[in-house]
Design a protein around this nucleic acid. Structure first.
Lengths: 272, 272
DNA sequence: GGACTCGATTGATAATTGTCAATCAGCCGG
DNA sequence: CCGGCTGATTGACAATTATCAATCGAGTCC
């Protein structure tokens, strides 16, 4: 909570926002003086996706659009792939695009003036990053890929044009705002209240599980530092809580940092 | 944090949502078994306001509407006044209207399954409560007046109709969602992180001040219990921190629970 | 294989916060 | 003015969490 930051480690080149944005990070005090430099990422341009045939079309912002609506898009929507640790944009950067997350996991981070960081949201496939670009002119968080991430960049002009011409985008935009508010409220209520152990338990209950090799649901955790930054506790406390859960058999490590959870036991710890 | 709730004390009659909604509070575990009963409020109907001449028109949801747009409103927009402590709606209630706050102060509360409460947002004049009514069918928080409140009730059908017919409402709706997200993120970052004293200091810096009798800006605080529920600390801790600030002269009590703040000193305590 | 690096874990200790209980202070109704 | 009431404050103590520092483990790079 009062500790220095530290995150990803992507290479230094360009970022998903295209052009070199210059030294735009106005928040990061960078006590350790390197995170800003790391913010340029290796973004592999993968071409222009076919929105109408997109594999996550139903989940994504354009879910409700019809053929005629797509014809209104006169600016390129590019697809990028970036490595874990890459910074997609920094808080304070000029916000010229929305990003649709097609695969991977992204954290949205806000910094306090004393340099401590707080993760305010996690974004998953189908989520839209940088909605604030539609109403403001700069990003309000720093977005960092926690895994390899595939995403589409939608220029904000496309959104504005579609908003004027078709009502079918509105509902999706509103739903996305709504989801952001809901996640924020849930984090305030469930992940920022109560004992550290209860917070960890609620977090573990909250995150999606994937079917493991044997069909048992498993989840890959984040670093202890990120878990601490989500729950408002120190890295050490997060580590201790998780280590305790391992020892007590509530969670079982299948692979390095990948766990099977006893949900009933977690619910008890979460205080239900 | 792990304490029983307790809030307002309005009389029991109707509520701002008009009809008797019945026992709809599905969240409140009501450990003390009385808050639900208290949820019926004395809502004084004040008639139908003149939106176009509204004193807070520029602040409010309809700020951008034009004459023709107002003609699209075919359902009554009622104005109500309620006492401090009244519950405007409960989480889980069927969401049939948005509320525009014209004066006063409202807290949005969410409950955890163990009965503890968390205040996730404060709403002030110009704010719109219950935006979720436009995308979902039930309220997600319990809204409680913290002072005498004047508000307008806009049936959700009005919003839907205007959304279809005019683009001028969209921007306002989006801005309001955006504001909600921003407040939630700020609370996560600034009010749920760090020591209790730093949280209180940030809170005091954050709340609006009014000019006092002598022109010096003052702010009336909430109850210690509410402050605790906003900051994720116990009532006692909130009380201690504020009492400390008083003793150390960082804040000075002008009237009962109304203070002048030394902002510089607060900034230091907030960890800037 | 061995040095090295980074993140996770653990230990020891101090500081903070929660908990329980008592007291204080303003307010209300007689 | 006197109870009675409610919310604020305080005290004493226990529990939790932060802090500082060391160690451990997996993976990487010669």
């Amino acid at each position: 909570m009062r500790r220095g930051p530290a995150q990803g480690r992507g290479a230094d080149r360009s970022n998903a926002e295209g052009e070199d944005n210059g030294p735009s990070c106005k928040q990061k005090p960078s006590r350790e003086g390197d995170v800003v430099k790391r913010s340029r990422i290796e973004a592999a341009w993968r071409g222009q996706p076919e929105c109408q045939g997109c594999s996550i079309r139903d989940l994504a912002l354009f879910a409700d659009l019809q053929q005629a609506d797509f014809n209104l898009i006169h600016l390129p929507i590019d697809e990028f792939e970036v490595e874990a640790g890459s910074v997609l944009y920094n808080g304070g950067d000029e916000a010229r695009a929305l990003l649709t997350l097609r695969s991977g996991l992204v954290k949205l981070v806000q910094y306090l003036s004393d340099g401590s960081q707080r993760i305010v949201r996690l974004q998953r496939p189908g989520d839209t990053l940088g909605l604030e670009a539609t109403v403001g002119d700069q990003y309000e968080h720093t977005a960092v890929a926690l895994r390899r991430v595939l995403l589409c960049r939608i220029p904000v002009e496309v959104i504005h044009r579609l908003s004027q011409e078709t009502p079918r985008l509105h509902r999706q935009l509103m739903m996305r705002w709504h989801n952001n508010v809901r996640q924020a409220d849930t984090w305030l209520t469930a992940l920022s209240t109560g004992s550290a152990k209860a917070r960890v338990a609620r977090f573990l209950l909250d995150i999606p599980k994937e079917a493991g090799a044997d069909g048992v649901p498993v989840c890959e955790l984040l670093s202890r530092e990120d878990i601490g930054a989500m729950l408002g506790v120190t890295t050490e406390t997060a580590s201790r809580m998780i280590a305790d859960l391992k020892r007590s058999g509530v969670i079982t490590e299948r692979k390095l940092n990948t766990f099977v959870c006893n949900e009933d036991a977690l619910r008890v710890l979460a205080g239900e």
